[in-house]
Write a protein that binds this DNA or RNA. Structure first.
Length: 509
RNA sequence: GGUCCGUUCGUCUAGCCAGGUCAGGACGCCAGGUUUUCAUCCUGGUAACACGGGUUCAAAUCCCGUACGGACUACCA
């Protein structure tokens, strides 16, 4: 292992919205780079033109912007190793494919997709699996069996071709994975993968090796689904005579229940997002929800994701991005898949809600208040938020916890009335109104002291009086400390609500 | 089918590499406490080493096998 500069990349394919598993992969790359003082690069792998989806690349960029994950180089930032989009690097790849042909490690193949499909079907019918490998390549249409002249002629007449890797025979390929340790595979079970497609574009395998090499990538941290192609990649580095980067294959994100990996379906079924941002499919118009639109704080979302498969080795759970980077280590990433738990995601958001200062929270909450048709002073909202934030998991839940701070009850919860509006209530509340009207210092402490003293003197039960009082002020049996509420809404409003409430509920016979 | 990877409370996980703590923490859930309501908060509880062999004085930890799960098996990434 050399001590070259740490350079890692996230290389998504712009075929749709980014799955949170992809976000986590990017996050681990980012944390790894930050911890080591290295560079983090965004490369777009769009070598499959047939799978291009409009807007997907912008979505990916916007998703990371929202998450607060920044790239040091890439499509948005530029850098010394660009271009960072594979479709713009098209001219680069062919020469490398040809280099392998020249050195006898790859070959031209002229079999059409249809021919190969037919062949696979035929084998399947005989309960065998067709593999384009050493055992089969001699009976197929390629430059290994064709004469040089025949091959030349086919090429000159523009016959469609692909370039295949000539998989070495009888090799035991040993690989080192930073997470899984040593992995060994026999080359005879591998096939002659296509490196260069007939449309003039490289496949992932070629492009990924060439670009990682050219961009001086030191560590490839990617999803577990790539593990089966690791031997091919190792052999490709070997064929080119290049030093391979180090590899780490991350475990999968699993669905909350049942078996298998987390999919969009699970989110729809169980009511949680599997994408960072909302996404509308340009073809079907179908919309998928996103963490941002569902009201998650980006920090909470990232924090939650980071702990799904990695832990710091101590008992900390709440981390800023900087703290995570400081604590991050690839060997504290687990080997097994992590089941996604929507409940814990909410818990994380709640923790961030508590952490966020009231001023910032008030700013986030204000639009929701205005949506209810209420004009509110930001300083007032700040105080309200301070009183109710611990009762909500999301900013959008704040309104139902605090509506009574912004307008008087329009109705009174029927169950609460039945339970708490007793025969004595009317007289008690009338007397309380008079009592409160005489208080100048309407601070929470002061009104509480006076009202409690009054209750003691009259031998009124706390539960009876204060619940009835709450009912008139709030309209329901909810909300924070009652005296905090009336201190905030003020004496005039308190008296007004008592008056209205007394009139509405009246005397109970 | 083949290849490879994985398996500790319901969930996320610590412990495993350098065998020897009542297997620790968090989420959830349950109970109790605080409280004028609800929530928070505090205390306590629930609950796991997939199974079977082996090595060893001693195995969650090392080895083998089985089961189960997953990924891959395209001119997709």
């Amino acid at each position: 292992m050399s001590n070259r500069e740490i350079r890692v990349r996230f290389a998504p394919s712009p075929t749709g919205p980014l799955h949170i598993g992809g976000v986590r992969t990017a996050l681990y790359n980012y944390l790894f780079a930050k911890k080591q003082g290295g560079k983090f690069i965004l490369r777009i792998e769009d070598t499959d033109q047939t799978r291009f989806v409009a807007g997907a690349e912008d979505y990916i960029i916007e998703a990371f912007r929202w998450c607060g994950i920044q790239f040091d180089e890439g499509v948005t930032k530029g850098g010394d190793f660009g271009p960072y989009k594979q479709s713009e690097r098209k001219a680069i790849y062919r020469q490398y494919a040809e280099q392998l042909i020249t050195s006898g490690q790859a070959y031209y193949a002229f079999d059409t997709a249809e021919e190969l499909t037919a062949l696979r079907k035929k084998y399947e019918a005989g309960k065998k699996t067709f593999t384009y490998n050493a055992a089969e390549r001699k009976q197929l249409k390629n430059s290994l069996v064709l004469s040089e002249a025949e091959t030349q002629k086919l090429l000159e007449t523009n016959t469609p071709f692909v370039v295949r890797f000539k998989m070495p025979e009888d090799r035991i390929v040993r690989m080192d994975d930073l997470i899984r340790g040593e992995v060994t595979v026999h080359s005879n079970v591998l096939d002659d993968k296509v490196l260069f497609k007939s449309d003039g574009m490289p496949t992932y395998h070629l492009a990924n090796i060439v670009d990682d090499h050219l961009m001086k990538i030191s560590h490839v941290i990617r999803g577990e689904e790539w593990l089966p192609s690791l031997p091919l990649h190792i052999l490709l580095y070997e064929a080119f005579g290049w030093e391979a980067p180090q590899f780490a294959h991350l475990p999968l994100l699993l669905k909350p229940d049942g078996k298998g990996k987390l999919s969009k379906r699970d989110g729809d079924r169980m009511g949680f997002p599997v994408f960072p941002l909302q996404w509308t499919d340009p073809k079907t118009g179908e919309t998928s929800r996103g963490y941002r639109e569902d009201g998650y704080f980006p920090d909470a979302f990232i924090n939650m994701l980071a702990l799904l498969g990695w832990n710091p080795g101590d008992e900390r759970e709440i981390f800023s991005l900087e703290e995570m980077a400081e604590a991050f280590s690839i060997d504290r990433v687990g080997k097994s898949g992590s089941r996604f738990d929507p409940e814990k995601a909410k818990w994380f958001n709640h923790q961030y809600m508590l952490k966020t200062d009231n001023k910032e929270l008030a700013g986030l909450f204000l639009p929701f208040i205005e949506k209810e048709g209420v004009m509110a002073d930001i300083g007032y909202v700040e105080k309200v938020v301070g009183l109710v934030k611990e009762r909500a998991h999301f900013v959008h839940e704040l309104w139902e916890q605090s509506d009574f701070f912004f307008r008087a009850p329009a109705s009174y919860d029927a169950k609460a009335v039945k339970k708490r509006w007793k025969q004595d209530s009317y007289n008690q509340m009338s007397a309380l109104k008079v009592l409160l009207a005489g208080i100048d210092n309407f601070s929470s402490e002061n009104t509480e002291a006076i009202v409690k003293k009054w209750m003691e003197e009259n031998e009124y039960g706390m539960g009876v009086v204060l619940n009835a009082f709450r009912l008139l002020i709030v309209g329901a049996l909810k909300g924070p400390h009652l005296f905090d509420i009336i201190a905030l809404i003020g004496r005039e409003e308190t008296l007004r609500r008592l008056e209205t409430g007394l009139h509405e509920l009246g005397r109970k016979e």
